[in-house]
């Protein structure tokens, strides 16, 4: 059942701001609609009480991917399909391209937006691990102004973020890419296509003379929310690139995930597998073993 909400379609950010200013409770931003529309039909309590729906797809500024002083700005109405096809992102942020290509089906990727993917902070949001390792932040506007906030601070708890009512995320900001990083995004689903992530993770590593110079790693569906593991990153900087090191990294990730997540129904499966697959990922990408 589709509620009889009032539908707004601002054409500019200023118009959006003024609509946000007038809003009472029960307003929602509509971008892709791939969560909200079926949520109505399934009478999900998250959506049935919506009385105002603000469609941001007609705001040209939010429908753009820009390169500003080396930073890449991704508008909040940008879809996964648009991310996949963007050459700037393909070149500099390939993990994001890869993650985007694993989201849903073509029909979903043609509608669903990257911001919409994480703005609800569902644990299986595939865009989160790459954005976290790329140190992304987001721009939020409200009638009174705007603020920038790192993504890892924005995400609070499952289905909970720092977004306040009368606010709207307008951009993802990814800082200029560093050269020499090797990395990968990994997703495991139950079947070969259109799968919800059972496990997702992303890493970036900068290797110099067979030693780890810089290292970033973030989880997706294995922790309650997407999360960077700064302790692991710091602990392994300076270590020699070797299979032993990779195993240690993987097992340390296992320990940290267990610490963060505790035992859940799926832990018996997911925890061994995430360690194994991180190891495989490191060997394949950094260790130079093909396969």
């Amino acid at each position: 059942m589709i509620p009889q909400f009032k539908y707004y379609r601002p054409k500019s950010i200023n118009e959006l701001k003024s609509i946000l200013g007038d809003m009472q409770d029960n307003s929602r931003i509509l971008a892709g609609g791939t969560d909200i529309v079926p949520g109505f039909i399934q009478q999900s309590s998250r959506f049935t009480s919506i009385t105002n729906l603000i469609d941001i797809n007609c705001i040209a500024d939010l429908k753009a991917i820009k390169n500003v002083d080396g930073q890449v700005l991704i508008g909040s109405a940008i879809t996964f399909a648009e991310i996949m096809k963007n050459e700037l992102i393909q070149t500099h942020f390939p993990l994001l391209t890869k993650a985007a290509s694993t989201v849903g089906s073509i029909q979903i990727r043609n509608r669903a937006t990257v911001v919409g993917n994480f703005v609800n902070n569902a644990p299986c949001a595939d865009s989160v691990p790459p954005l976290l390792v790329y140190d992304a932040s987001i721009k939020i506007i409200s009638p009174n102004g705007e603020r920038n906030i790192p993504l890892n601070e924005f995400l609070l708890n499952p289905y909970e973020t720092q977004l306040k009512k009368n606010e709207c995320v307008t951009e993802i900001i990814i800082p200029a890419p560093k050269e020499n990083f090797i990395g990968d995004f990994y997703k495991l689903g139950r079947r070969s296509a259109v799968s919800i992530s059972r496990i997702s993770l992303a890493f970036l590593m900068h290797e110099e003379n067979k030693f780890i110079k810089e290292f970033k790693i973030a989880s997706g569906a294995i922790t309650p929310i997407g999360k960077r593991f700064y302790e692991i990153e710091n602990a392994f900087v300076g270590k020699e690139i070797s299979s032993e090191t990779f195993m240690e990294i993987a097992s340390t990730l296992g320990e940290k995930v267990l610490e963060t997540t505790g035992l859940r129904w799926s832990t018996d499966y997911k925890l061994p597998v995430v360690q194994q697959m991180l190891y495989q990922l490191l060997e394949r990408n950094v260790g130079g073993i093909s396969g």
């Binding site: 032993e244 195993m247 993987a250 097992s251 267990l258 832990t267 190891y279 495989q280």
Partner: peptide
Amino acid sequence: QLILKKKDYI
């Protein structure tokens, strides 16, 4: 037991 040992890595 859930933490892999070296021998567990394939």
